[in-house]
Nucleic acid binder design. Structure first.
Lengths: 214, 214
DNA sequence: GTAATGTTTTACCAACCGGTCAAATTATCG
DNA sequence: CGATAATTTGACCGGTTGGTAAAACATTAC
């Protein structure tokens, strides 16, 4: 008898593990471009090189695939922020946070776009995670930044908007990649633009946050 | 005989003008949330308070509606950048550019999201406009910024990435509105957050770009 | 008023959509 | 090998989708 999906506490087959990963990869391609509504199971099955019923043997619904992708992204996406260390050197912490976020935009653009698509569409499937775990983490780190400002280690500024501005500037290179390429032109299309972006953002945030004694 | 749509050089009826506007408004609502593929004509017709065939009497295809919306947005979206004045005071010009972009994110969030959706999906319908008019305009303004830097009026920096960072930070408040609200909490939901954002971004960019004599 | 034009509705279509089912096929294990 | 469980397939279903055709209805111009 065929038990549809990791139903019981049974261990997962090698094939299951492999196919599920292939499906998730294909689904990431499709969802990150078309969003949830715009993506079809056929597209995903096609990209994964299998038939639709076969795909549905591993994931019961379209939503189940999306759910799993979103859960993964939500977790890994916040890694850099979690690594933010209250006891470290403020300037170095912010600098390395920017660099890490930029590296993620470069190395995981599909994940960034998947998330962007979900937020753009009103985040109907992850509202709770945003208002819960995400908000809590940001609140915590905002307090760290505020403490640094009070101690005179960085310029006084709104920590929430600082975080927003780091998110937006870095993710821009993944989410708006097409536009960035179009504006910079073909010659610039290489990975060199990421180094230029890193240099620029570093200068912007470091000088923008340095305590000025005028 | 019913001539489907402004076919000949005929003038448009009062009813045509009015209905077309109502359709475009409704379509903006739907497209900006669901993207092109995710949106349906039925949804748009519903939102516009008319039947689907009636809507299709004014716009022959779903793509025609989207096309017109995108064209409008592309034009108005670049207004602030066009207003960028080479002969003005550099600091004041950049400051007012930021403010204007932020006001647009506040006042026209649907337009911002429509554009973001299109870019996220690889900009299949506006690639030419990006590589043509958009790139030309940015090239021109980048040269202005570069000249300011050479003249020592602002800090030396990559003008393209400066423009990208202004775009991303300001549009973030429209495109990622749901996330911003979730993180800031209900109490902050009012328009106050736009003033806070304006203050923060002003500080960030002004201090980040000021010439430092260290 | 009436004829021409402009607008709206009703009924419809073929393609596509998410998902099911049962049968056929393949892998695993004793 | 044979039996059992896991995987794959093809045929199918009800609902949705973008779009059409033609007739009914409303508006305007004379």
């Amino acid at each position: 008898m065929a038990i549809p999906r990791a139903a019981k506490t049974q261990r997962r087959t090698r094939i299951q593990e492999e196919k599920e990963e292939r499906i998730l990869g294909a689904a990431l391609d499709v969802f990150s471009v078309n969003g949830f509504r715009g993506a079809t199971i056929d597209q995903i099955a096609d990209a994964a090189g299998m038939s639709k019923p076969n795909l549905l043997y591993y994931f019961r619904t379209k939503e189940a695939i999306h759910r799993q992708l979103i859960d993964r992204v939500l977790f890994t996406w916040l890694e850099p922020l979690r690594a933010f260390n209250a006891d470290g050197n403020p300037e170095a912490e912010i600098r390395s946070y920017i660099r890490r976020k930029l590296e993620m935009a470069r190395d995981y653009p599909r994940e960034s776009r998947l998330f962007a698509n979900e937020i753009l569409q009103g985040a109907p499937r992850i509202e709770d995670e945003l208002k819960g775990p995400l908000k809590d983490l940001v609140d915590e780190k905002a307090e760290v930044i505020r403490a640094w400002a009070r101690a005179g280690k960085i310029a006084r500024c709104d920590p929430y908007h600082l975080i927003f501005s780091i998110w937006s500037t870095t993710q821009h290179y993944a989410d708006f990649d097409v536009q960035v390429r179009a504006v910079l032109g073909q010659d610039y299309a290489g990975d060199g633009r990421f180094e230029d972006a890193a240099r620029f953002l570093e200068q912007l945030f470091m000088d923008g946050l340095r305590v000025r004694n005028t």
